[in-house]
Design a protein around this nucleic acid. Structure first.
Length: 183
DNA sequence: ACGATGATGAAC
DNA sequence: TTCATCATCGTA
Protein backbone atom coordinates (compact mmCIF):
# COMPACT_ATOMS: atom_id res chain seq x y z
CA UNK A 1 0.00 0.00 0.00
CA UNK A 2 1.44 3.32 -1.09
CA UNK A 3 -0.72 6.42 -1.21
CA UNK A 4 0.45 10.00 -1.77
CA UNK A 5 -1.26 12.29 0.70
CA UNK A 6 -2.95 15.31 -0.84
CA UNK A 7 -4.43 18.57 0.48
CA UNK A 8 -7.38 16.75 2.03
CA UNK A 9 -5.06 15.05 4.51
CA UNK A 10 -3.69 18.39 5.63
CA UNK A 11 -7.01 20.23 5.64
CA UNK A 12 -7.61 19.34 9.29
CA UNK A 13 -6.53 20.80 12.64
CA UNK A 14 -2.75 20.79 13.01
CA UNK A 15 -3.03 18.77 16.20
CA UNK A 16 -4.76 15.93 14.35
CA UNK A 17 -2.37 16.10 11.41
CA UNK A 18 0.70 16.10 13.68
CA UNK A 19 -0.46 12.88 15.34
CA UNK A 20 -1.49 11.33 12.05
CA UNK A 21 1.85 12.10 10.37
CA UNK A 22 3.64 9.71 12.71
CA UNK A 23 4.23 6.52 10.75
CA UNK A 24 3.81 8.24 7.40
CA UNK A 25 6.76 8.69 5.06
CA UNK A 26 8.39 11.94 4.03
CA UNK A 27 9.69 11.33 0.51
CA UNK A 28 12.41 13.45 -1.03
CA UNK A 29 13.52 13.35 -4.64
CA UNK A 30 16.69 15.27 -5.43
CA UNK A 31 19.27 14.73 -8.13
CA UNK A 32 17.38 11.78 -9.60
CA UNK A 33 17.39 9.88 -6.32
CA UNK A 34 14.32 9.24 -4.22
CA UNK A 35 14.48 8.42 -0.54
CA UNK A 36 11.69 7.83 1.95
CA UNK A 37 11.92 8.60 5.65
CA UNK A 38 9.59 7.48 8.41
CA UNK A 39 8.21 10.47 10.31
CA UNK A 40 8.91 9.92 14.00
CA UNK A 41 8.57 13.35 15.64
CA UNK A 42 6.24 16.30 14.98
CA UNK A 43 4.94 19.45 16.63
CA UNK A 44 1.77 21.38 15.90
CA UNK A 45 1.30 25.12 15.73
CA UNK A 46 -2.27 26.30 15.79
CA UNK A 47 -3.76 29.68 14.94
CA UNK A 48 -2.98 33.24 15.93
CA UNK A 49 -3.49 32.79 19.65
CA UNK A 50 -0.82 30.09 19.93
CA UNK A 51 2.02 32.05 21.53
CA UNK A 52 4.54 29.46 20.37
CA UNK A 53 3.67 30.06 16.74
CA UNK A 54 5.23 32.41 14.25
CA UNK A 55 1.67 33.53 13.50
CA UNK A 56 1.16 34.86 17.04
CA UNK A 57 1.64 38.44 15.88
CA UNK A 58 -0.28 38.08 12.66
CA UNK A 59 0.83 37.65 9.11
CA UNK A 60 4.35 38.70 8.17
CA UNK A 61 6.50 38.22 5.12
CA UNK A 62 8.18 35.20 6.70
CA UNK A 63 5.14 33.39 8.07
CA UNK A 64 2.84 34.07 5.11
CA UNK A 65 3.01 30.43 3.91
CA UNK A 66 1.28 29.39 7.15
CA UNK A 67 -1.82 31.17 5.82
CA UNK A 68 -1.67 29.42 2.44
CA UNK A 69 -3.44 26.28 1.25
CA UNK A 70 -3.15 23.07 3.26
CA UNK A 71 -0.29 20.97 1.96
CA UNK A 72 1.91 24.01 1.41
CA UNK A 73 5.55 23.73 2.45
CA UNK A 74 6.74 26.36 4.95
CA UNK A 75 10.52 26.42 5.32
CA UNK A 76 12.11 29.14 7.43
CA UNK A 77 15.64 29.98 8.49
CA UNK A 78 16.48 30.43 12.14
CA UNK A 79 19.35 31.01 14.55
CA UNK A 80 21.42 32.14 11.62
CA UNK A 81 22.11 28.53 10.67
CA UNK A 82 19.16 26.22 10.37
CA UNK A 83 16.27 25.46 8.04
CA UNK A 84 13.01 24.22 9.57
CA UNK A 85 10.45 22.19 7.63
CA UNK A 86 6.77 22.78 8.34
CA UNK A 87 3.72 21.40 6.54
CA UNK A 88 0.76 23.78 6.42
CA UNK A 89 -2.53 22.50 7.78
CA UNK A 90 -6.16 23.46 8.29
CA UNK A 91 -8.05 25.79 5.97
CA UNK A 92 -6.52 28.53 3.84
CA UNK A 93 -6.12 31.87 5.67
CA UNK A 94 -5.97 30.12 9.07
CA UNK A 95 -2.33 29.91 10.26
CA UNK A 96 -1.56 26.35 11.24
CA UNK A 97 1.32 24.02 10.53
CA UNK A 98 3.20 20.94 11.68
CA UNK A 99 6.93 21.17 12.29
CA UNK A 100 8.70 17.97 11.25
CA UNK A 101 11.21 17.38 14.05
CA UNK A 102 12.45 13.87 13.35
CA UNK A 103 12.58 11.19 10.68
CA UNK A 104 14.27 7.83 10.33
CA UNK A 105 15.38 5.53 7.56
CA UNK A 106 16.93 2.08 7.78
CA UNK A 107 20.32 3.76 7.68
CA UNK A 108 19.93 7.02 9.57
CA UNK A 109 18.12 8.41 12.55
CA UNK A 110 17.64 12.14 12.02
CA UNK A 111 16.47 13.45 15.38
CA UNK A 112 16.17 17.20 15.28
CA UNK A 113 14.44 19.55 12.85
CA UNK A 114 17.68 21.06 11.51
CA UNK A 115 19.38 17.71 11.11
CA UNK A 116 16.72 16.37 8.83
CA UNK A 117 16.55 19.46 6.63
CA UNK A 118 20.33 19.34 6.20
CA UNK A 119 20.28 15.64 5.31
CA UNK A 120 17.33 15.98 2.90
CA UNK A 121 18.69 19.17 1.32
CA UNK A 122 15.60 21.14 2.30
CA UNK A 123 15.95 24.92 2.21
CA UNK A 124 14.10 28.04 1.08
CA UNK A 125 13.83 26.79 -2.48
CA UNK A 126 10.95 24.60 -1.29
CA UNK A 127 9.27 27.37 0.69
CA UNK A 128 5.68 28.18 -0.42
CA UNK A 129 5.51 25.19 -2.80
CA UNK A 130 2.82 22.56 -2.50
CA UNK A 131 3.89 19.10 -1.42
CA UNK A 132 4.08 17.14 -4.68
CA UNK A 133 6.29 14.87 -6.72
CA UNK A 134 6.91 17.84 -8.97
CA UNK A 135 8.32 19.82 -6.04
CA UNK A 136 10.45 16.81 -5.08
CA UNK A 137 8.92 16.55 -1.62
CA UNK A 138 5.77 14.71 -0.66
CA UNK A 139 4.24 12.48 2.03
CA UNK A 140 3.11 8.89 1.58
CA UNK A 141 0.99 6.52 3.60
CA UNK A 142 2.67 3.14 3.26
CA UNK A 143 0.28 1.27 5.49
CA UNK A 144 2.09 1.61 8.82
CA UNK A 145 -0.43 1.47 11.64
CA UNK A 146 0.65 3.51 14.66
CA UNK A 147 -0.96 2.44 17.90
CA UNK A 148 -1.76 4.83 20.72
CA UNK A 149 0.72 3.10 23.03
CA UNK A 150 3.51 3.84 20.55
CA UNK A 151 2.90 7.60 20.68
CA UNK A 152 4.37 9.89 23.33
CA UNK A 153 3.12 13.45 23.81
CA UNK A 154 5.19 16.19 25.40
CA UNK A 155 5.28 19.99 25.46
CA UNK A 156 6.92 21.57 22.44
CA UNK A 157 10.65 22.16 22.37
CA UNK A 158 12.13 25.64 22.69
CA UNK A 159 9.00 27.55 23.76
CA UNK A 160 9.89 28.97 27.20
CA UNK A 161 7.96 31.60 29.15
CA UNK A 162 4.76 31.41 27.11
CA UNK A 163 2.40 30.44 29.91
CA UNK A 164 -0.14 27.80 28.97
CA UNK A 165 1.31 27.67 25.44
CA UNK A 166 4.61 26.43 26.85
CA UNK A 167 2.81 23.53 28.50
CA UNK A 168 0.56 22.41 25.63
CA UNK A 169 1.45 18.77 24.88
CA UNK A 170 1.58 19.37 21.16
CA UNK A 171 4.77 17.43 20.40
CA UNK A 172 4.27 13.86 19.18
CA UNK A 173 6.99 11.21 19.21
CA UNK A 174 6.77 7.75 17.69
CA UNK A 175 8.29 5.26 20.08
CA UNK A 176 9.75 1.93 18.96
CA UNK A 177 10.22 3.13 15.40
CA UNK A 178 13.03 0.61 14.89
CA UNK A 179 10.55 -2.22 15.15
CA UNK A 180 8.24 -0.61 12.62
CA UNK A 181 11.07 0.07 10.17
CA UNK A 182 12.18 -3.55 10.35
CA UNK A 183 8.70 -4.81 9.46
C1' DA B 1 27.23 24.94 30.44
C1' DC B 2 28.37 28.41 26.92
C1' DG B 3 29.72 30.76 22.51
C1' DA B 4 29.17 31.03 17.48
C1' DT B 5 26.16 31.15 13.83
C1' DG B 6 23.83 35.80 11.52
C1' DA B 7 17.80 35.85 9.09
C1' DT B 8 13.70 37.88 10.61
C1' DG B 9 10.59 40.67 13.12
C1' DA B 10 9.55 43.36 17.18
C1' DA B 11 10.80 46.29 20.93
C1' DC B 12 13.10 50.25 22.17
C1' DT C 1 19.88 49.67 17.13
C1' DT C 2 19.35 45.95 20.01
C1' DC C 3 17.29 41.76 21.26
C1' DA C 4 14.98 37.07 21.16
C1' DT C 5 14.04 33.29 18.38
C1' DC C 6 9.87 26.42 16.68
C1' DA C 7 18.84 24.66 17.12
C1' DT C 8 23.11 22.43 16.68
C1' DC C 9 27.92 21.73 17.16
C1' DG C 10 32.25 22.44 19.19
C1' DT C 11 34.65 23.41 23.19
C1' DA C 12 34.97 23.52 28.45
Amino acid sequence: MRRVLGPRFFERPALIVARDLLGKFLVRRVGGKTRAYLIIETESYFGWRDQGSHARRGKTERNAPMFAKPGTIYVYFTYGMHWMLNLVCDREHFPAAVLIRGVASDKKHLDGPAKLTAALKIDKRLNTKLLSKKAGLWVEDRGVRVRAKDVARTPRIGIPNRGVWTEKPWRFVLKADRRIIDV
